[in-house]
Amino acid sequence: MNNQKFTGSSGRYERQISLIGSEGQKKLNDATILIAGAGGLGSPAATYLALAGIGELVIVDDDVIQESNLNRQFLHATQSIGLQKVYSAQATLEKMQPDVSVVAYPKRIDAQSANRLIKDADLVIDALDNYESRFILHEAAWKAGIPFIHGAIEGFSGQLTSIIPKSSPCLSCLIPSAPPVGKVSVMGATAGVIGSMQAMEAIKYLTNTGSMISGRLLIWDGLSGRIEFMKTEKRKNCQVCSE
């Protein structure tokens, strides 16, 4: 939770302290964020959160790097193909930003690991690539009262919503059951847009700045440049969030 390496007095954060204040910067430094997925969304989300001065990032992913990841997963270099993504992400981030502590967890998310990972986190970034893991991690986060910043992408499109326990509908209200798996095509910049927005949501939440994309789903279409907001509501008899 605290990071001895933090150099808050350096000029590194000068251009953002003017936006969020020293207090806001301290809140970022004191925070631990769980990044679930070190792929397309995880790359921009983790990078911007590290650069913003988040004290600790815990990154979980059980995948190894494949060549087909490299059009978007910029935490990983060509020579890292075959390595575990979490270790490559850890090395890249720590080199880029000496203030951040990165904890790498090369495991698949199941009910047990989800609860353990959530325990120390102030916030979760959902950068996962499947709903099975999302539902497990989301339920653990909801029960622990931890915000869960959901993002997902396909092709030129993406979606995002911030799930804040007790104040917003939950992920299962929004998506009661896993949708059919779509095409695996994705343009790297699609991941860049949505992953960056996830980092922005986390920064807003931690520093109490602006208003969250919560209680509504952001739908982004890169082909037209359109953004839609769809109001979301609690679903009757939701298995996760109904009392």
């Binding site: 995880g42 997902a152 396909e154 695996v184």
Partner: peptide, 10 residues
């Protein structure tokens, strides 16, 4: 009317 399929990739 707007139609959107939830996407799942990451």
């Amino acid at each position: 009317i707007i139609l959107f399929p939830p996407v799942s990739g990451g």
